[in-house]
Design a protein around this nucleic acid. Structure first.
Lengths: 157, 157
DNA sequence: TTATAATAGTTGCAGTTTCTAACTATTCGA
DNA sequence: TCGAATAGTTAGAAACTGCAACTATTATAA
């Protein structure tokens, strides 16, 4: 294991939790759209993968199936997500955003993004580019391929 | 707000929580050193700031004072941290790692670092450098200055 | 065709984490 | 010296998460 890998790992381990904690605090402070970080990420996933299953969401977010089931409970009770039994396989569950869910997500995204942008704004352009490139580099390492979910039966009223 | 700032913010918001979640899962899976991410970060902070106060730790980690008090409770009960009343100001609490605390932290760091390095290892050298630079750019934006704590009465047996 | 196995979720239970509100103890300032 | 400010703690509640055990459905194979 070369030194640069170690240094890089150490920096990631130090910085990324701090960033996420800052995001968490900011999201909690904005009482308007009461979403936890996992809830927010789950809404984003469902938005990108209408009709996905519970397992899909659990694997992507990094939660166990029971935990995701509970998380989805909360989102369903809040009226943000629609949980329906799949017609193709009645063991499976089909997840979709409700209109409210989509708009709550959009609002949370907008608010968090505005705040985050404000934090980044003073950085020189080159630095922003570096950060952006770094995120693109890390994406495939830590985000199980986002677009593997077959988008079938997205809606079936 | 220029577009690159927005794009950068969006990427951060998408990727960093995924990285931290992966770290969390990995740390939980490694039953050996049973530390949550905030506990781990707190141990790191105390290690770098022997004799720091509860408030110092709370502010750095991004928790409220009561939450940090409880978190420290756990670490004290686990024998990882020493909580003593400050001699200079008896309202204050003085935090230090125990020998066990230092070694548990070192083990957790080592294990997590090894795993994280393994994830990064396949990346080309240039990419690692980009990631490292990005972390250094983000550090001051999201990590309240780590070295502002006056290191007094680090120990007073 | 039917029994067994595998898959997808849910529920119950427990342990943590984190918050707010209310409290105690100590120190500072007028 | 008395009131205000500071540092922490405790109590109570809600949310998050995991494991174990369960149900329901589908696939496999004898």
């Amino acid at each position: 294991m070369d030194a640069s890998t170690q240094t890089c790992a150490r920096a990631l381990l130090e910085i990324t939790p701090a960033i996420v904690q800052a995001i968490r605090v900011r999201m909690r402070a904005a009482r308007l759209h009461e979403l936890s970080v996992p809830q927010f990420r789950t809404l984003a996933f469902i938005g990108r993968h209408p009709g996905c299953s519970l397992s899909d969401a659990a694997e992507f977010i990094g939660l166990t199936l029971p935990s995701m089931s509970v998380l989805i409970n909360g989102l369903v009770e809040a009226g943000l997500v629609l949980r329906q039994t799949s017609l193709l396989d009645r063991r499976r569950v089909t997840l979709n955003l409700t209109g409210t869910g989509a708009s709550v997500y959009a609002h949370a995204l907008e608010g968090t993004l505005a705040w985050l942008s404000q934090q980044l704004e003073p950085l020189p352009e080159a630095d922003k580019q570096t950060v952006l490139r770094a995120m693109e580099i890390l994406r495939p390492q830590f985000l199980t391929n986002t677009d593997a979910t077959p988008i079938v039966e997205a809606t079936h009223a």
